[in-house]
């Protein structure tokens, strides 16, 4: 998802017998559906895993601004420009909420940025793919936001209070994102031959990368098992992916577009869609930094941060001067 393959303690889920009294009390609070708040006691591994997950989620939001930002200055109408800009601005806002949630765990936003810029923390693989035509704005909204929503809606019930509250706010604002994307796809599909070709091409390029967003199957992953016990991961990767395909396949049909998968078919026995797995080799290469846009995306973020340094320092210096002057006066 926006947070892919987040590692937990790696030791697997402890049994009640292996836990000490504090850990047992913590786990029973989670099992009872209570929220954990910043000043509550929590296992070090819970804190660490959450920082990784929320941090990666936050990074994905702000790196995720870039592929769509790529088309803001070329949006074809004033209405589309305003909608797209508002959407990409929301992503900055969502990044901000998530960084603030991570900060309640004792890590600063600047530290998280530093880990992003030095490659110590990752962001979602999906944003390392290029946006080549206007139809990609439709495909990204429809598929990428659609996939994100699959994951984010259940995360509103996650065990960590600040994270859950950030997700509630994000989900509320995000409702228009997927619709915005689908509306672009509809318009393109009802448009000229060239426009419909663009829409099909965008689906072809974004389909498998969207499936990769959920991460490889984690039915045997110790990390996922631990995260699910802690309720910071609510569903397995395969379940979410299946739900996404089930929702998306009929939408593609409605648009008159073909999902680039010969095996895709509704299975009457399971009442679900059968589909082909994405190329996981490609996924691992993208994670390693070999996607088409990894270097460009990271460089853009690094440059924005270093170009902004004098601004952040200048504004802070002015605030300090004012504060000192006030103290002297008082």
């Amino acid at each position: 998802m926006y947070a892919q393959m987040v590692k937990s303690s790696g030791e697997g889920v402890k049994t009640a017998g292996e836990m000490d009294a504090q850990e047992r009390a913590f786990q029973s609070r989670i099992d009872a559906g209570e929220k954990i708040e910043p000043k509550d006691w929590m296992p070090a591994a819970y804190r660490k895993t959450l920082i990784r997950q929320i941090g990666q989620h936050a990074h994905s939001e702000i790196v995720g601004q870039l592929p769509e930002g790529n088309w803001i200055t070329r949006a074809p109408t004033l209405e589309r420009k305003a909608n797209l800009l508002a959407k990409v601005q929301d992503e900055a806002g969502h990044g901000l909420y998530l960084y603030c949630a991570a900060e309640t765990l004792g890590v600063s936003r600047d530290e998280l940025f530093d880990m992003l810029h030095t490659g110590k923390m990752k962001y979602s693989s999906i944003f390392n793919y290029p946006t080549l035509t206007w139809a990609d704005m439709g495909a990204v909204g429809w598929l990428v936001d659609g996939a994100a929503i699959m994951n984010q809606v259940p995360l509103q019930r996650t065990s960590y209070g600040p994270y859950a509250r950030a997700m509630v706010r994000i989900c509320k604002e995000e409702s228009f994102h997927q619709r915005q994307g689908f509306h672009i796809m509809m318009t393109m599909c009802n448009g000229s031959v060239a426009q419909k070709e663009m829409a099909q091409d965008a689906l072809n390029r974004f389909w498998y990368p969207s499936l990769m967003m959920f991460g490889p199957s984690d039915k045997d992953s110790v990390h996922s098992a631990q995260s699910m016990a802690w309720k910071i991961k609510m569903d397995s990767n395969d379940d979410l992916r299946q739900r996404f395909v089930n929702a998306t396949a009929p939408q593609a049909e409605f648009l008159g577009l073909t999902i680039p998968d010969d095996k895709l078919a509704f299975n009457e026995d399971t009442q679900q869609y059968d589909f082909s797995e994405p190329d996981w080799e490609e996924f691992y290469e993208v994670l390693k930094g070999n996607g088409p846009c990894n270097r460009d995306r990271l460089e853009t973020r690094q440059r924005a941060w270093s170009d902004g340094e004098w601004v952040r320092e200048g504004m802070m210096a002015h605030a300090d001067k004012r504060r000192n002057a006030n103290q002297t006066a008082a």
């Binding site: 930002g69 200055t73 990409v88 601005q89 900055a92 936003r109 853009t300 924005a304 902004g308 601004v311």
Partner: peptide
Amino acid sequence: MSEWCGTGPALEEDIALANTAL
């Protein structure tokens, strides 16, 4: 102003620049 989107000097400024553009 819309050209700034995604590359502002701080997240808060990025959002504010977009508001002006909008």
